[in-house]
């Protein structure tokens, strides 16, 4: 049994442009909607069975555009939400000195599974959720699934595909080294005959060829 999952980051939001720690409710920008339409065209040729997404508006809007284009159902699941940020940082610029101070504090405690600054999901919470998300996908009947999700959570998915025992250091390497654009696609395959490591393979990461559209041009990327 072979299953293909196209993990796709949602389209651009005003929060992405302003580099904010995003509020869950922020919607797609006009450019984000154009990006979603371009990625939907990519999926039209790929025999998609189902589109899943988190319940955050930016993911739901992106997913609905894809599902409508492919004429397939769309379902929302809490598994695919973005990392819950500490309430003290949500909505603030990522590079704000106070936000950076809080992030540094979190870094100091990265090896402590029980430590949280306040109400955020820490690395261990996110790895556990990524594991549940992958198990959920494995159990679904469809063979070609699009999952519209979020950048930081997707990097946790990448890390969990890498190893069920991924360390905070290994995750940091993925977080800093691998970039993911709005509507970038990570193509992953689960092959029941491929029994090495976690069973998943990463075929592409952040494929965003659809953003180099000559008609939309630089506006899309």
């Amino acid at each position: 049994m072979k299953k293909t999952v196209y993990f796709t980051r949602h389209g651009e939001t005003a929060g992405n442009v302003q580099d904010l720690v995003q509020d869950p409710n922020i919607p797609l920008s006009e450019k984000g909607i154009r990006q979603a339409r371009l990625v939907a065209d990519r999926f039209l040729t790929l025999s998609v069975d189902l589109v899943l997404s988190s319940d955050y508006p930016r993911a739901v809007e992106t997913a609905e555009i894809i599902a409508a284009q492919c004429s397939v159902p769309h379902e929302q699941h809490l598994y695919f939400r973005e990392r819950r940020g500490a309430k003290e940082v949500v909505g603030k610029p990522r590079l704000d000195p106070e936000v950076q101070r809080i992030y540094k504090e979190m870094q100091k405690h990265k090896d402590d599974a029980e430590w949280r600054y306040s109400d955020e999901e820490n690395f261990y919470d996110l790895i556990a959720r990524a594991k549940q998300a992958l198990a959920f996908l494995e159990a679904l009947p469809g063979t070609t699934i699009v999952v519209v999700t979020h950048a930081i959570f997707l990097k946790h998915i990448l890390s969990m595909i890498w190893s069920e025992k991924v360390t905070p250091e290994e995750f940091q390497n993925f977080r800093t080294t691998f970039r993911i654009e709005n509507t970038g696609i990570a193509t992953c395959i689960l092959d029941s005959e491929h029994t090495i490591h976690t069973g998943w393979q990463i075929i592409t990461w952040n494929d965003h060829a659809h953003l180099a559209d000559p008609v939309v041009g630089k506006d899309a990327s």
């Binding site: 080294t177 970039r179 970038g184 990461w205 952040n206 494929d207 965003h208 060829a209």
Partner: peptide, 25 residues
């Protein structure tokens, strides 16, 4: 891979895309 040597937070190479092969379709 992309790099911005003047980006003080990330001056090293980052992987923007792995194994794009859309041209093979």
């Amino acid at each position: 891979c992309v790099r911005d040597t003047e980006n003080h937070i990330h001056p090293d190479w980052r992987i923007l895309t792995w194994n794009d092969h859309v041209h093979l379709a």
